[in-house]
Design a protein around this nucleic acid. Sequence first.
DNA 1: TGATTATTGACACGGTGTCTCATCAAGTGG
DNA 2: CCACTTGATGAGACACCGTGTCAATAATCA
Lengths: 169, 169
Amino acid sequence: MLLRDFEDRPLCYASGMSQVPDHDAPSVPSPEHVAELLVRHGYRSTAPRRAVVADVLARGRPFTAEEVVANLRQRVPEIGRATVYRTLELLASVDVLSRVLRSDGHPAYIAGTPGHRHHLVCSDCGAAVAFSACPVDELVRDLSRDTRFSIQGHLLEVFGLCPECQPTV
Amino acid sequence: MLLRDFEDRPLCYASGMSQVPDHDAPSVPSPEHVAELLVRHGYRSTAPRRAVVADVLARGRPFTAEEVVANLRQRVPEIGRATVYRTLELLASVDVLSRVLRSDGHPAYIAGTPGHRHHLVCSDCGAAVAFSACPVDELVRDLSRDTRFSIQGHLLEVFGLCPECQPTV
DNA sequence: TGATTATTGACACGGTGTCTCATCAAGTGG
DNA sequence: CCACTTGATGAGACACCGTGTCAATAATCA
């Protein structure tokens, strides 16, 4: 696959921030919008890709590539595993998905959080809340000054238990 | 293996912070100190473990378990892969190592940064600088209040190019 | 020294992601 | 509308990673 304008970038790029947590309702784009987005980036809109997009946009919490494969195989048995992996990577490259890490360290994707976002993920049920307040910028300035590193990006995930999963006292 | 006082904790726990970046020189303990530490925790001091400890303490940058296996096999061919993995996990549990993530998302270990630390890792050569300034605490308070999540921990890594790896202008 | 038991090493296993390659089909221009 | 070009697909093999099992071994202690 050719991934245009996308090469080995770190998991997250610091590209802007807002000062207050905003816990946005995930702004999930429509399947048609995603299809058009792909075409605009020079990719083709194919049946397998549309199937992956449809599956993925319906999800409100982090999911793994294998989960998508398993779920998709039930309706589209002939779809290839590699295709799903490639499409997910593709969707991440155009900001329809973002990569997150579960608290067990396993990589996953989540839909509908374009831009610079981090996630608060429930380590029990997997429910996720996106937030764009990123407290790292000032730290990055200090580090950059003190270490002479040229900072490229950062990775921040917060883990906890959502209200539903907390043990009732 | 029995891992005492260590069960499935997230990659990083927020357990304290200092306000200023301190870029500590890594305080690498001696092999003897680590051996004693293990005994104090109720583990046995064995030849394979000492070999892993010796190998690991000599490293100044993040390394993967497989790297340790490969390197160790040259001098101690009979050492088992599982033993290395178990020993690394063990050393992380007693805070001799900490887990970090490379910018490609691959998990690794780094020696000599006990306590609550994060790392600035060069995405080219892998050189790492530890820092204990953790700007996440305030964010965690806000998130906790606004989302009613009970926050358990967080993961923060910063990536960049170290001075040696930056393209000379 | 002998008993106890943690630890080891070999191996197999499952999961994950990548790669290859022949085939297919989306988009293009004629 | 058709043929062509080339990106995309799917099947399968493959490598890698981390874990689990289990009999054999060795560290500790009485």
